[in-house]
Amino acid sequence: MHDEPLNPNNLSPAAIEQEQLDARIVRALETTPKPMVPPDFAARLGSRLPAQRPESLTPTHYGRNATLLGIVAAFVALLAVALHTTAGVAVGFVESLLLAEFIALTVWLTVRRQSLR
C-alpha cells in the first residue's frame, strides 16, 4: 500500500488534526453565552445611581460652532472692509488681520474635522 496522503492538499494527518482542532476551538469561542439578564436590571440600577447628575451623553460642539461663527463674521467683515472706498493704512491693517483670522480659522477647522473622522 502506498503511503499517499489522503488529503488533496497534501496535508499530513497531524496537520489536518491540527486544523480541525483549531476550527473546533474557534467554534467554541464564538459560541456566545446567553446569560439571564434580570428584567428589572436597568430600573434597579437607575434607582441606585448616586445623586450626581451625569454629563449629557450628547457630545457638545460649542467650539466648532464658535469657529464657524468666527469664519462667517470674518468673511462678512472682510467684505465690508473691501467695499470701504477710503482705503488707508489702518483699514489695510484691519483687512490683513481679518484675512489672517479667516484663513487661520478655516485651516484649523478643516484639520480638526479630518482628525476627528
Binding site: 456566545t32 453565552p33 446569560p35 439578564v37 436597568a42 430600573a43 437607575g46 445611581l49 451625569p54
Partner: peptide, 25 residues
C-alpha cells in the same frame, strides 16, 4: 448621536453585552 438618551436606556441597550462579556471573562 447620543441625543436624548437617558442613562437607563444606555443600560438597557448594553446590558446583554456586559453580562455575556463578564460571564466569559
Amino acid at each position: 448621536m447620543y441625543a436624548d438618551l437617558t442613562f437607563e436606556q444606555v443600560v438597557r441597550d448594553h446590558q446583554e453585552m456586559v453580562f455575556r462579556t463578564l460571564l466569559r471573562l
